[in-house]
Each structure stands twice: as structure tokens, then as C-alpha cells.
Amino acid sequence: MNVYSIARSQYYRGVDAEPIQANRPFVAGDTHNLDHARANNHLEAKTMQTIIEAVLQAGRSAVDIALYTLLPIMLVMMVLMRFLHGAGVIDRAVRIMEPALSPFGLNGLSVLVMIQISLVSFAAPLPTLTLMEDRGTSNRRLAAALAAVLAMAPANATFPMAAIGVNAGLTVLLSVIGGLVASSCCFYVFGRKLSADPLEPNAIEKRATTKPSILKTIEIGGSEAMLVVLRVIPMLLLSLFVVYSAQSAGVINILKTVLAPLFSFLGLSTDLILPIITKYLAGSTALVGLYTDLDRSGTVSSILTSDSTIGFLLHPFDLPGIAILLSAGPRIARCALPALVSALVGIGIRSALGFVVA
């Protein structure tokens, strides 16, 4: 055994291992230790490669969603909101709708939030939530509005799934009920300790209320949309990293195996396992993709399109959805906990009502 071989063997055996003497006879254990060390190094390298690939994939997806999906919606909606605000339309709408929504813990702008998620997409309420924070809406009412959004069905999932057999009209109706239940729970129960006092409008809002020119309004709305989208990327990237890491590590398959006996014991269809895992890890868009694939293969069971199941699955309460909505503003993120708990109550009510009316 030459000096190089001795050094390599000593390295793979560890620095605390007994030195190998040059005149010691070669034993089979030396080869075993060397192979074991090589296997460990290979495993570590493969794990690191998997992590890096997950990070890069999450980064590409996060930037793609932020720039090519959220930014166009945010920019158009935010500029439109600023024009309506400058024309006094929003202030009049708030005065008209506030008396009807106040018992549910909502203000007039909150109805726009509910309309946007029901008729546009899960990302459409972002500009209105941001505007509510800019205008100094109290933390308590901000949390109530967020709870309503988290409990409601987004249009970008509801209407595509109508072609698969989902009752879109009933879904929207139960969605509104669930949203109102969630906002009420947040305002009167889980978020009652939050401040109900309005705050001073921030600097962006003060600039917008000076009735700037058309170009200045576009500039204000566009810059605000860009700021929101930039805040979205880090949280969205982290949530997608969790999803892709779970997929690479086989966590989803493990969950399917572990949950199957539990679902059977509870009398629930095992057909629900994959949609539930897909929804809560990857979001509503991934769920629509899964349903579309199942429909093409002719394996969509009636339980998957039942009103109870749809009430439990169609909402932004998932990793990507929460990450995006909490990026609407720093105060919204700080008020998230009571809103999240209240949203679960609203989702439960939607699912229960769907079971009753079925």
C-alpha cells in the first residue's frame, strides 16, 4: 500500500480512526469503509442536487407566476381602482354598501374584494386589499376582509371546473355565505382583540387623493402594482420550494399510503386523497389541472364533483394562495392569524352546506 493509498484510506475512515500502518497487511474492511464513504458522498451530492433543482424550479415558477400572471392583473386592476378612486366612484360605493356589510365586520370596499375573487380570480382582490390598507382601514376590518377572501371560491377554478360537472352557480352562492361567515367570525371572535380604529392614509394614498393627471394616476397605480408583485415573489418562491421538495422526496406518495387507511376508517373515499394533497400543497390551479387530467381519463368520480367536496377544495387557503394574499401589505400579513382560523370556519360551513343541499 503506497502513501497515497494510506492517505485516502485514512481520510475515508475519519480523522479519529486508528492510523493504517504501511506494513500492516491489507484487510477486507478497508475496502468496505472506502465503499461506504463513497456511498455517503454520493448520497450527499444527490441530496444537494435535488435541493438546488427544487430551488431553481421554484424560482422559475415564482417569477413566471408573478410577472406573467399576477403583474398584468395587478397593474390593470390597480390603475382602474385609482381612476375610480379619483372620480369618487369608490367613495360613493363605500357609503352605499357599508351599512349592509358592517354587521359582517366588512366595509364598503370589502364587497369589491368578494366580487373580484368570485368573478375574476384569486389574485384579483390584491389591489383592493392593498387599497384598503393604504386608505387606513382598521386592522380588524382588514383581517375580516382577508378571512372572507380565503374562504371563497376563486373564479379561475370555479368556472373551468364547471365543464367537468361542478355546479358553478351553487358554488358561488355557498362561497359568498362561507365568506360572510368567515368575516363575521374574524371580526367578532378570533380577531376581536385587533384594533378597530382607522389609521391615517399612507403616503401613496395621500398622493392619489390629490387628483393627479391621467399619466400620474397610471404611474401611481403601476408602481403600487409592481411593489405588491415584488413582495409576492419571496413568499411564493418559498411555498413552491416546499411543494417541489415534497414531490422530489416522495412525500406525496408517502402521504397517499399513510392516509388511505385513515380515510377508509372514516368512511371517506380514497379518491379524495390526491386532490386534497394537490390542492393544499400546490393550489387551485394545480387542482384544476388534476381534475382536467382525471376527466380526460374518465376517472372523475361523483364524490370529486359533489358540492361538499368542492366547498372543501375550492378556495385560496393553500400554500401559494396564502403566500400571495399576505403580500398585499405589511398590516395584512400581521393580521393573518385570526383571518386564517376564521377562514377555516367559513370553509367548513361551505362544505357542510354542500353536503346538506346535495
Score class of each variant (00 low, 15 high):
residue 52 I to W: 13
residue 40 N to W: 06
residue 17 A to L: 02
residue 290 L to I: 01
residue 353 L to W: 07
residue 117 I to N: 04
residue 156 N to V: 10
residue 248 S to F: 11
residue 29 G to C: 09
residue 110 S to I: 09
residue 107 N to G: 13
residue 112 L to N: 06
residue 316 P to H: 04
residue 82 R to A: 13
residue 292 T to L: 09
residue 291 Y to N: 01
residue 112 L to A: 13
residue 230 L to S: 12
residue 146 L to I: 05
residue 316 P to C: 08
residue 254 I to V: 14
residue 221 G to Q: 02
residue 259 L to Q: 06
residue 17 A to K: 08
residue 275 P to R: 08
residue 149 V to H: 03
residue 191 G to C: 05
residue 233 I to T: 03
residue 147 A to K: 01
residue 345 V to R: 09
residue 258 V to W: 05
residue 114 M to S: 10
residue 356 V to F: 11
residue 185 C to M: 12
residue 93 A to C: 08
residue 184 S to Y: 13
residue 244 Y to G: 01
residue 17 A to P: 03
residue 289 G to I: 08
residue 297 S to H: 08
residue 219 E to Q: 15
residue 102 S to V: 01
residue 173 L to N: 00
residue 127 P to N: 01
residue 97 M to E: 11
residue 129 L to Q: 00
residue 314 L to M: 09
residue 255 L to F: 10
residue 282 A to T: 06
residue 242 V to I: 14
residue 81 M to A: 14
residue 161 M to V: 13
residue 295 D to K: 13
residue 48 M to V: 15
residue 103 P to K: 11
residue 101 L to D: 02
residue 286 A to S: 15
residue 324 I to N: 04
residue 179 G to K: 07
residue 269 S to W: 04
residue 330 P to R: 14
residue 125 P to T: 00
residue 89 V to I: 14
residue 247 Q to N: 11
residue 347 I to T: 00
residue 207 R to S: 12
residue 140 R to P: 02
residue 332 I to D: 03
residue 57 Q to S: 13
residue 181 V to A: 01
residue 261 P to L: 02
residue 237 L to W: 14
residue 304 L to V: 09
residue 158 T to W: 02
residue 142 L to F: 12
residue 193 K to R: 15
residue 5 S to Y: 03
residue 107 N to P: 05
residue 77 M to T: 07
residue 190 F to W: 01
residue 72 P to E: 10
residue 90 I to Y: 08
residue 71 L to Q: 00
residue 183 S to G: 07
residue 338 P to W: 03
residue 154 P to G: 02
residue 118 S to R: 09
residue 178 G to A: 04
residue 266 L to K: 02
residue 7 A to D: 14
residue 242 V to M: 08
residue 304 L to A: 10
residue 130 T to I: 10
residue 232 V to D: 09
residue 242 V to F: 06
residue 123 A to M: 09
residue 78 M to Q: 15
residue 353 L to C: 02
residue 329 G to A: 11
residue 231 R to N: 13
residue 148 A to M: 02
residue 4 Y to G: 07
residue 290 L to Q: 13
residue 282 A to P: 05
residue 156 N to I: 04
residue 343 A to P: 00
residue 227 L to V: 14
residue 206 K to G: 04
residue 202 N to G: 05
residue 28 A to H: 15
residue 307 D to K: 13
residue 65 I to T: 14
